[in-house]
């Protein structure tokens, strides 16, 4: 009688983890033929892209390729720039973000933004976080809301005993996390992060990256970064933008958009390969 050697597969951790990734992805932004111009010059041209729910999407590319312009289109931040103009469509949850009648303030509540340089108000830590909810009339249970946002931004333990202190007394990394807390205090759906760690030291950067990984459970994140390795580390999807130079005019174009793993191991486009290997840009 043969005693078999076949074994029941041991927990296939790696596979299990792979399977945990959502296969069917919900589309949060459906961007169609987006061209954004300042005056007559298009900064980005003909961008088609889908951004998925609870996923971190990184936007990378050389300086001037329109990365920031692109994410500013996603919460109508460019409306505030004189002469800025949008062609094409951005559907957010299926609705045209730029349709007449859409309130840009409501858009920015649902699609929050964190900038390169931490920009807390010169007020207390508490007031910084409470500011958004107060303005929007979300005054009920404000203390809980502030605590929840600070916890969400992994800052609570560091500041809970000095909520009345001026926010400017915090370190750069803490200020940036405070800005993230401020952004999530109004319960947005999406967080746009424009170079959120470029002014921070490696430890503070690492804290922000860890935080992003946690935040994606509840939010959809889009991050613009100069730091390719940061995109490789944190993002699930990566969009590579580059510059098309035509008769002296430089326009940002989307070159490649794919799973981050694919972009950094086997990109489809030669320009992406050249950029991620440091041969260009």
């Amino acid at each position: 009688m043969t005693e078999g050697i076949t074994m029941t597969p041991v927990i296939e951790v790696a596979q299990a983890r792979k399977d945990a990734e959502p296969v069917q992805r919900d589309i949060v932004f459906d961007i169609q033929k987006l061209t954004a111009s300042y005056g007559k010059e298009p900064a980005i041209s003909d961008v088609d892209l889908e951004i998925y729910r609870n996923v971190i999407t990184a936007v990378i590319g050389p300086s001037g390729c329109g990365k920031s312009t692109f994410i500013r289109c996603l919460n109508r931040m460019n409306d505030l720039v004189p002469g800025a103009k949008i062609d094409g469509k951005i559907l957010y949850q299926g609705d045209d973000l730029y349709a007449s009648g859409v309130d840009p303030v409501e858009v920015r509540r649902r699609i929050g933004m964190v900038f390169q340089k931490a920009n807390p108000f010169p007020k207390s830590i508490y007031d910084n976080v409470a500011w958004g909810p107060r303005v929007l009339g979300m005054r009920k249970d404000l203390d809980e809301r502030v605590e929840k946002a600070l916890r969400g931004a992994a800052l609570w333990d560091e500041v809970k005993d000095r909520l009345k202190k001026n926010a400017l007394s915090l370190s750069g990394g803490q200020q940036q996390r405070l800005c993230i807390a401020r952004a999530i205090a109004v319960e947005p759906d999406v967080l746009l992060l424009d170079e959120p760690a470029s002014a921070l030291d490696p430890i503070a950067t690492s804290a922000i990256e860890e935080l992003m990984d946690e935040l994606k459970r509840d939010y959809t994140l889009v991050i613009v970064t100069h730091n390719m390795q940061q995109a490789a580390r944190v993002a699930d999807m990566t969009a590579f933008f580059s510059l098309d130079v035509d008769e002296g005019r430089r326009t940002g174009v989307l070159v490649e958009y794919d799973e981050t793993a694919k972009i950094f191991t086997n990109p489809s486009d030669k320009r992406t390969e050249d950029y991620v290997t440091g041969r260009f840009g």
Partner: peptide, 22 residues
């Protein structure tokens, strides 16, 4: 710090040990 990275390393090593048992 870098918990996703540490987790990936742990998974690799666990899979290696599993391969050894096989």
């Amino acid at each position: 710090m870098r918990s996703a990275f540490q987790q990936d390393l742990d998974i690799l090593e666990a899979t290696l040990q599993e391969e050894g048992q096989l």
